[in-house]
Amino acid sequence: MKAYSRIPDTPGTGKFAATKTTDTAFPGHTVYRPRDLKALGAHKLPILLWGNGGCADDGASARLFLSEIASHGYLVVAAGTIKSGPGVPFRYEAPVAPPPGKVIPPVKTTYQDVAAGLDQAIAANADRTNSLYGKIDTSRVAVAGHSCGGLQALQLGGDPRIKTVLVLNSGLFSDGANPIAGMTVHKDLLKALHTPILYMLGGPEDVAYPNGTDDFARIDTVPAALVNLPTGHGGTFMQPNGGEGAKITVAWLNWQLRGDKKAASMFVGEDCGLCRTSGVKIERKHLTM
């Protein structure tokens, strides 16, 4: 992580060069957005709420990945403040022993923290003194997260304001098994889903593979896709511009939040883009253009 923290922030490859920033309107969160808001013109920013790996409180932990998404015209609100990256002194945090009966230390953010990012975005969009005033599309909202953050995304999946859910290198534990201190989840969360959902796993080497594939097998009421990349649990978050995982995420968001049919072709049809990508496996349920 120390070496990753020295990698410069990048603007992404999309039409709108992105910036990672803090904003007093988003306390306790990190914001990724197009740098030049005037360049948006009439374009409004759909929202992506983000839960960090480990449910950590470092909103910069997936900064290359999230900047890439923002560069395609999105407002990304990550739980936690900027605690890593260029200009931030590396701070060693001693391991915290989990409490009795748990195997993973307590979370530093909760799904309520992730959800708060949406309330803050709605308020900023209505605030004439904020640079984001009138520039956010508060009707187009996605929630996503990595690992423990993916569980937070599933906890928010039933929120009627959410239009799609992305679960990255994650999946719900078997009922009764809640090894993370401060978090209780169960398979019944899948019954609350009301939107299309994307699972992106790192293949059989991903520690979340059994949980994520079991979730996908259980889902039968909403459109769903399961994409496996040969990355293991770490995904492509630390790769330049977020790697292949960011490309897939942007395509899913463009389809689900903007109705982009070209983006949809990555997932839909016998000859879909991911169907033809070497090393990638895609499974689908009720998924149509």
Rank of each mutant, 00 (worst) to 15 (best):
V114M: 08
A126G: 12
L229H: 05
A18W: 06
H43D: 08
S174L: 07
C275R: 12
T30K: 07
L229D: 04
Y111I: 04
A56R: 14
V268L: 07
N228G: 10
A124G: 05
N211H: 09
P230H: 07
V88W: 06
H286E: 10
Q256H: 03
G202K: 09
R258E: 15
A251W: 09
D206W: 10
F267D: 02
K20R: 14
D260G: 14
P160Y: 04
Y32T: 01
L172P: 11
N52K: 02
L287N: 04
G134A: 09
L45H: 04
G202R: 05
E68Y: 04
D119A: 15
F65K: 05
I104V: 15
G117Y: 05
L75R: 13
R284N: 06
D214W: 01
N52Y: 00
R258I: 02
Q112M: 13
G149S: 11
L201Q: 11
K187T: 14
L64R: 15
S147L: 03
I282C: 02
P11W: 05
S67L: 13
S131C: 00
A62C: 14
Y92Q: 01
T231C: 11
L257D: 13
L189C: 08
P230F: 07
D214K: 07
L257I: 12
D23F: 03
P46C: 12
H72L: 04
T277A: 13
A224I: 03
A79Q: 13
A39H: 05
N169Y: 09
N211G: 01
S170M: 01
